[in-house]
C-alpha cells in the first residue's frame, strides 16, 4: 500500500495544538525558508521539522514522505547545478574534461532550492498526521470562512481513498478468479490490462456517490446554517508557540 497521509492518534504537544497554530507554522516555515539564501539555515529548519515529527511520535510514518521528497530534490539539484555559469569553478562532473562544470554559486543555489522544497513541503504531512480531519474542517469553515461545501469535498475525497483501495482489491480478486493476470512489464500492455479493473471501479464509485448524495440529502445536508458539536479553542500553548514562531520570523527578517 502506498504511503498514506492520514491522522495518527497520539497525545503529544504538537497534536494538542490548535489547527490554526499548526497551519500558521507551515506558513512560518515557508516564510523563513525564503528569507534565507544559504543552504545551512534552511537545512536547520528542515531538521526542526524532523524534530517535531520525532517529538510527535510520527517519524516512522512521515519518513517515507520525506525520503521521497529528498529523492525528488536530488533530481532538482541535477537539473539545476550544471546550468549555472556564474561563479568560480569548483569541479567538473567528469574529471579532467570540460564537461559538467559546477560552480560555487550553482552549488549554493541548487542546495538552497532543494532544501527549501523539502523543508516547506514536509510540513504538510506533519500537519495532516497530527490534526484530525474533522478538526481541520471545523477550523477552515468557522475561523477561516471557507465555504463548507468546499471543505466537505476535500474531506470526503480523502476519506474515500481507503474505501476505493478496498474496492480495487475486491475487483482484482473477482477478475483474477476469471484467469486475469496482472503481471506484465510491458507498459503498453499495462494500460490495456487496467481496463478490467478501472471500469468496475468507475461504475461502483459513481453508484456510491449517488447513494451518498441521496443519504446526505435525506439527513438535511445544506439545508441551512450549520452548527458544530466540537468547540476548538486557542490555549496558552498556542499563544506561546505563535509568539515563538513570530519572533523567529522577525529575528531572521531583521538580522539576515
Amino acid at each position: 500500500m502506498p504511503a498514506m497521509i492520514e491522522y495518527i492518534q497520539k497525545d503529544s504537544f504538537f497534536h494538542r495544538l490548535h489547527p490554526i497554530t499548526k497551519i500558521l507554522w507551515t506558513f512560518g516555515v515557508l516564510i523563513i525558508s525564503f528569507l534565507f539564501s544559504t543552504p545551512l539555515p534552511i537545512f536547520i529548519i528542515l531538521l526542526s521539522n524532523i524534530l517535531i515529527a520525532v517529538a510527535s511520535g510520527i517519524f516512522k510514518q512521515v519518513f517515507p514522505a520525506i525520503k521521497a521528497l529528498f529523492l525528488f530534490s536530488l533530481l532538482l539539484i541535477v537539473f539545476q547545478i550544471f546550468f549555472v555559469t556564474e561563479g568560480n569553478t569548483l569541479f567538473y562532473a567528469i574529471p579532467f574534461t570540460n564537461i559538467g562544470r559546477v560552480t560555487d554559486v550553482g552549488l549554493n543555489l541548487s542546495l538552497v532550492m532543494s532544501f527549501r522544497m523539502v523543508a516547506t513541503v514536509s510540513t504538510i504531512p506533519i500537519l495532516m498526521m497530527t490534526t484530525p480531519m474533522t478538526d481541520m474542517v471545523v477550523v477552515l469553515v468557522e475561523k477561516l470562512k471557507i465555504p463548507f461545501k468546499f471543505a466537505f469535498m476535500f474531506i470526503t475525497a480523502l476519506r474515500f481513498i481507503p474505501t476505493l483501495l478496498g474496492e480495487i482489491e475486491q475487483i482484482m480478486q473477482a477478475q483474477m478468479s476469471r484467469g486475469y493476470n496482472s503481471d506484465t512489464r510491458n507498459p503498453f500492455k499495462k494500460i490495456i490490462i487496467i481496463i478490467p479493473l478501472a471500469i468496475p471501479l468507475l461504475v461502483s464509485s459513481i453508484k456510491k456517490t449517488e447513494k451518498m448524495a441521496i443519504s446526505m440529502e435525506a439527513r438535511g445536508f445544506a439545508s441551512g446554517p450549520r452548527s458544530y458539536y466540537k468547540k476548538i479553542m486557542m490555549k496558552k500553548e498556542d499563544y506561546a508557540s505563535l509568539f515563538v514562531l513570530i519572533s523567529v520570523i522577525f529575528i531572521t527578517a531583521i538580522v539576515f
Binding site: 473477482a174 477478475q175 483474477m176 481496463i195 478490467p196 471500469i199 461502483s204
Partner: peptide, 22 residues
Amino acid sequence: TKTSVLAKKIGFLFQNPDHQIF
C-alpha cells in the same frame, strides 16, 4: 499455483456482479 492458473480448475462467483462486469 497462481490464481489465474487455478481459474481453469475452479470457478468463483462473487456476491456482487458489479465488481467484475466491465
